[in-house]
Amino acid sequence: MPPGQGSSGTLGSIGVDFKLWGRDTGGAVSIVEHPFPVGALVRPHLHTREDEYSIVTEGEIGFRSGDREAVLGAGGYITKPRDELHAMWNAGAVPARMIEVISPAGFENFFHELSELLLSVSQPEVSEIAELAGQYGLQFGQPDWLPDAIARYNLTPLPE
């Protein structure tokens, strides 16, 4: 995949650039890139089927996975194991970007379907997103540390 190629979409608060699909790797991994606008927050969630490995390539991205919290700059790595609640946010004053390695592959299809849904409807029903998430073993959480992280990093609050 040459630089700058691959399809792109939106996941709401962040973007997604598709680089390697499961069909490209025999199902072993998929790779996407996520651009993070200033103030972007990815809702706390956990995966029941895959592990994620993130590499920051631009800016600063904050991560909370389980009880671990870190802000990483370009070149920083973090693991987000399956069944561990995690969230990510732009922790800086400039746009940020990261590479996401998903193992095993398959969850990239959730990103694709969510992006398509968000293109077709400006404000999808919560039940539509919950149903789609359930198909991929994705669960959302509302941890008690979230309001503090939103305040500390001046993040855009999540819709209820």
Rank of each mutant, 00 (worst) to 15 (best):
V126M: 13
A70D: 11
S115N: 01
F111G: 08
E108P: 02
V56N: 00
Y77F: 10
P147E: 05
P159L: 13
S8P: 11
A133F: 11
D148E: 12
F107W: 08
S8M: 13
D148A: 11
G59T: 04
E60G: 02
P35V: 13
G27F: 12
E108T: 04
E52H: 06
L11H: 00
D17S: 15
V38R: 05
D144E: 11
A91T: 07
G134W: 12
M1L: 12
I78K: 03
P159Q: 09
N154K: 12
G92Q: 02
L138S: 09
L138G: 02
S115E: 13
K19F: 07
M98S: 05
G9I: 04
A105W: 07
L119M: 15
Y53Q: 15
H86M: 02
D17A: 11
S65K: 03
E116Q: 13
E50G: 03
G134T: 14
N90C: 06
R152G: 10
M1E: 14
P124M: 02
P159G: 09
R97F: 04
M1R: 11
F36Y: 14
T10R: 07
S115C: 07
L117N: 10
R49D: 12
Y53L: 14
E69C: 04
S65P: 03
L155Y: 09
G22V: 08
V16E: 04
F111S: 03
R49K: 09
V56P: 00
Y53P: 00
I129N: 03
R43G: 05
E125C: 14
T79F: 07
A130H: 10
A28I: 15
D17H: 14
P3Y: 13
M1C: 14
V101W: 06
L117G: 10
V71K: 00
A130M: 14
A87H: 02
E52D: 04
V94W: 05
N154E: 14
L146M: 01
V29M: 12
F36W: 12
A40P: 02
S115P: 09
G22F: 03
H47Y: 05
T79Y: 06
L118T: 04
L41E: 00
A87S: 15
P143S: 06
E60T: 10
P37M: 08
G15L: 07
P143F: 03
V42W: 01
P3I: 10
Y136K: 08
T48C: 10
